[in-house]
Amino acid sequence: MGEGGVLVEWDWWTVDFGDAHAGAVGVLVGGGEPGPVYFDVGSGSYVPSTRHWSAYDGRYRRPRAEALRAVCACGWRGAAEYPMDWATIGDRPLYEADVDLTGPLADWTAHLSVVREATVPLPEPLAVLLIEMAGRLNAAAEDAPLAALRAAGVLERIASRVGREAVGALCDDSPSAEAVATGLGTTYSKALVTTSALLAFGFAGADCARKRVVSPAARTLRAAGDTVSMSCTDFAGPDHEQGGAFDHDWC
C-alpha cells in the first residue's frame, strides 16, 4: 500500500528481499512521476486509485505515460527511460497492448544484483538447503496442501527462535540500523525498528542468566502492531527484572 492508501501493484518480487525491494514499472509524464489515477465508481466516500503503469493510458482524462522506467520499493529509480510508442499502441488500453517491459525489468534486476552483492553471504550448504526446501514445499502445496501448511508453520517457529538467537549473538557488536539494512538487504526503516528494539536496554554478555525481558520500546512497537523479532534481551540477574515485563510465551 502506497502513500495515502493508494494501491501500488508491484510487478516483480523475490523471496530474497520480499517487499523491501519489490519492483515495478514506473511512469514518467513531463519528466516526473505523475500522481495516482483515480477511478470514478459513482457516489460514496471511497475512491479507488492506483499507480500501476497500465492505468496511465490517457483515456477518461487520465495522464498518458510518456516514458517508462524501473522503480523499486526501497526508493531506487532506474536511470534509463523507455519512451512509449503511442503510434503503435493507438487507442488500445495499455493492459491490452504488447508493451515491451524487458528494459525496466533488466534495470531492476541489475539493481537487485547491487543490493545482493552488499548483503551478508549465506554459507553455500545453507543456500542449497533453502532452495531445496522451497522446491519441496512448493511441490507439497500442490500434492499435500495440509502437510505443506503444517510444514510452513514449523518453519515459521524455527525461524522465529533462530532469529532471536542470532540477535543475541549480535548484541555485543551493537550494529547500526544502516549496517543491519545493508547486511540483510532490507530498508533502513525496517532495520531501524529492529535495532531500536534490540538496543533498547543493551545485553549483559555471555554470562547473563537466560531470562527474556521485553523492553518498554519493544512493548510499544508490539502494541503498535509491528513485527519485532529483535525485542528480547538477556539480563544478568533479578535486579534487572524491573526493567521490563516478562513475556515467556512471546520470547
Rank of each mutant, 00 (worst) to 15 (best):
E124C: 00
A141N: 10
L94F: 08
V99W: 06
P125Q: 04
A141Q: 15
V128L: 12
M133A: 13
S113P: 02
L101E: 02
N138R: 14
P93A: 03
M133I: 13
E117W: 03
W108G: 01
A127W: 03
W108N: 01
P125L: 09
L126S: 05
R116Q: 07
M133L: 15
L137E: 05
M133H: 05
R116L: 02
T102P: 03
L129C: 06
Y95P: 07
D143N: 15
E142S: 07
A110D: 11
N138T: 09
P145K: 01
L94E: 12
V115G: 04
A110Q: 05
L126C: 07
L112C: 04
R116T: 05
A97Q: 14
S113H: 11
R136F: 07
T109I: 06
A140I: 09
L94A: 08
A140R: 14
L101A: 06
V128T: 08
D98T: 15
A127H: 02
A127S: 07
A139I: 03
R136H: 13
A110R: 12
P93N: 06
L126A: 12
V114P: 00
P123M: 04
A97D: 10
A144F: 09
E117Q: 07
P123L: 02
A144V: 13
R116Y: 03
A110N: 01
R92H: 15
P123S: 01
A139F: 03
S113M: 12
G103A: 13
E142D: 08
A144M: 10
E124S: 00
V115P: 04
T119P: 12
T109G: 03
A110V: 06
R116N: 04
L101S: 05
R136A: 13
I131M: 11
E124Y: 01
P121E: 00
P93L: 03
W108Q: 01
L126W: 06
A110W: 00
L137K: 04
I131Y: 05
S113G: 10
V114E: 07
V128D: 04
A110F: 01
L94N: 14
A134I: 10
S113T: 13
A134G: 12
D100S: 12
I131H: 11
T109D: 10
A134F: 05
A141T: 12
P121K: 00
L137W: 04
D107A: 14
D98E: 15
D143E: 15
N138I: 03
N138A: 12
A127E: 07
A141L: 13
R92G: 14
R136C: 08
L126Y: 12
D100F: 12
T102D: 14
V114W: 00
E117H: 08
G103R: 07
A127K: 02
E132D: 15
A139L: 04
D98Y: 11
L126D: 07
R116S: 05
A118S: 05
P123K: 00
R136T: 11
L101T: 15
A97N: 08
L105G: 06
A139S: 04
D98S: 15
A144N: 13
A144K: 13
A106R: 08
Y95A: 14
I131F: 06
V99F: 05
A127I: 01
L122V: 08
D143P: 10
